[in-house]
Amino acid sequence: MTRHAKRLRIAGLSVLQIVVAALVLLPFFWMLSVSFKPATEAFAIPAELWPRNPTLENYVLALRPEFRRYFLNSMIVSGATLAITIPLGLLAAYSLSRFQYRILSVFLAMVVLAQFFPAGAMIIPIYKIVRSAGLLDTYASLIIAYITVTLPVAIWMMRGFLMRVPRTLEEAAAIDGASPLRAFVDIVIPLARPGIVATSVFVLIVTWQEFLFALSFTSSKEMRTLPVGMNDYIGQYGVRYGELMASSVMISVPVIAVFFFLQRQFVAGLTAGAVKG
């Protein structure tokens, strides 16, 4: 290719990237925009991209005590799910990455297969189980249900990262006197950290936004999580879009913040230099 053609190609690709990015980002931008618009402006026609009279009114209204309660509930449920899924999943994944099990391929196939079942198909049996266990309207019901969803995927994801940690390093640690557990903690975990972080983010996102289980298993306002709580704004006689979008923004902020701060962790390549190069 000539230099000219190459430049053209790069330019074309850049335009394509901008278009795709715009398509993806438009709803987010709309959410932000509406959250700053007064109620009269939200659905003015023709629609305007920027708020004409920006206001914080929606945020003030949205930050009701209930919202704070939902936020707390979401934190508890997501946090507990994460705190159980990651250590448990890590140990299981480690075992599956280091030992040959005959059922391994069956297990992995099941994990993938399970992803094809829509949650709606499983909700009724799970509801019955939760009810007969007397767990309806508790944090435990959600935490348990979420773990059943996140744990297999977490094992599957982390196994992939653990497989990439060279075995020689554990052998070197064993020769240096470390017990298998010590080698796991000192060597394997630090090297698999990008994978552990990525898996944690996955767990957080799945649980933070989960709606169906949360709606079905909780009935009292005290137990609701954020996605369910958002329903409050969708009333019989209309939708309070301003507040809905303001709380949507506030729900998204933690997720975006997590991404922002952990971005560097995703960058693998931490194992560079372990073995020849």
Partner: peptide, 20 residues
């Protein structure tokens, strides 16, 4: 005996250094 209990050191072909 576990490797660590044998009082020996080993140099691996690919060095086996801890990258972190």
């Amino acid at each position: 005996l576990a490797p660590g209990e044998r009082d020996l050191a080993m140099v691996f072909q690919n060095y086996g250094l801890y990258p972190h």
